[in-house]
């Protein structure tokens, strides 16, 4: 088990900055998810923790011990990769045994531990097969077994589920969460899927362009996004971001007029409102527009309303139906409105 600290960590390749000034303290047994779009630096940060990349600046510590310059094989971490990274020439048994063999675990103990790990991911029947004949889900479970077999102090998981189909992804997510709680091993998990992040994480670290945008529990990040990027990244569908102007305590944009929650002055602002905080209502509400698209999903209906040039997403009841271009009115939940500076994206309160 391990506490992981990153202090002023940066990674540069010449003029290209991959990761800038990362400060992060991951508690023992915690499951932290790095979330962000492609190229945001989340995988690079994880690779630096693994020892597969050396930070250009800053310090990485595990249980207080400085890890800079320590080779990946000498750090007590196990990594699970997006492409499984199972050794194709070895059977699943040999794959799972590999880290034990590299660390000189006695042979009899190796066999016992391999069967134990395979049992935990329900892979006991496939131990004599080569990775090539297994399904994606089985391969990912084999990769998990290889990671857990030697009881490392930290798991690093780099988008481990992104090659699986939606149904399997959900099942594996549950399995990973259960395993992490059972083994009580500090885990760093990288993903660009915000549902994965929300459902798995004790804390989420949202990254963009190599920098941390916000750190918090899933609830904190959802309820209190610190900037427009985080607000737009978390939530499915994402938060509506509408550019407009505040004056005399009212936010206005084409088709929209709503109280600005006590924000004074006369300035351009971006209004953020989540689709679930928009309610179809009678006329004379906060938004008047026309139906642009309707997407029934079974349990509810996604409705897109065009107000001026903005498209505003609304979660409506499952039975909601309307003609295209029909006028529609929406009331916002006034307690759940967010305002952001249109230039910097920083939240304005």
């Amino acid at each position: 088990m391990a506490r992981i600290e990153l202090e002023g960590v940066e990674k540069r390749w010449g003029a290209v900055v991959g990761v800038r000034d990362i400060d992060l303290d991951i508690a023992d047994q915690e499951l932290v998810v790095f979330l962000g779009p492609s190229g945001c630096g989340k995988t690079t940060t994880m690779r630096m923790i693994a020892g597969l990349e050396e930070p250009t600046e800053g310090e990485i510590r595990m249980d207080g011990e400085l890890m800079n310059g320590v080779d990946a094989r000498d750090r007590d971490v196990a990594m699970v990769f997006q492409g499984y990274a199972l050794y194709p020439n070895m059977t699943i048994f040999e794959n799972i045994r590999f880290p034990l063999r590299m660390r000189g675990v006695p042979k009899a103990e190796q066999t016992r531990l391999v069967h134990q790990a395979a049992g935990m991911v329900e892979l006991g029947e496939h131990l004599d097969r080569k990775p090539g004949v297994l399904s994606g889900g089985q391969r990912q479970r084999a990769a998990l077994a290889r990671a857990i077999v030697r009881n490392p102090s930290c798991f690093l998981m780099d988008e481990p589920l992104s090659n699986l189909d939606a149904k399997l992804r959900q099942a594996m997510r549950v399995q990973i969460k259960h395993l992490q709680r059972e083994l009580k091993t500090t885990t760093v998990y990288v993903t660009h899927d915000q549902i994965e992040a929300m459902t798995l994480a004790d804390r989420i670290v949202i990254m963009e362009r190599g920098a941390i945008q916000q750190i918090g529990t899933p609830d904190e990040i959802y309820a209190n996004p610190s900037n427009a990027f985080v607000a737009g990244f978390i939530g499915s569908p994402p938060m509506n971001l509408i550019e407009g102007r505040v004056s005399d305590g009212m936010f206005t944009a084409p088709g929209i007029a709503v109280a600005a929650n006590g924000i004074e002055g006369d300035r351009d602002l971006t209004l953020g409102v989540r689709p679930e905080d928009c309610h179809i209502g009678p006329s004379d509400t906060h938004l008047d527009g026309a139906v642009f698209a309707i997407e029934p999903t079974g349990d509810l209906t996604y409705l897109t309303i065009k107000a001026g040039e903005d498209l505003v997403e609304v979660k409506a009841d499952r039975g909601y139906r309307a003609d295209l271009d029909a006028p529609e009115h929406v009331a916002f939940n006034l307690d759940r409105l967010y305002f952001f500076d249109p230039e910097s994206g920083i939240r304005v309160r």
């Binding site: 690779r47 693994a50 020892g51 597969l52 080779d71 990946a72 094989r73 750090r75 971490v77 196990a78 990594m79 990769f81 997006q82 492409g83 990274a85 199972l86 050794y87 590999f98 880290p99 590299m102 660390r103 290889r146 690093l156």
Partner: peptide
Amino acid sequence: PKELEDAARTDGASDLR
């Protein structure tokens, strides 16, 4: 894939291994 080597490295293998 580079991932294979990265996996082996975190599993504790040397370059020669």
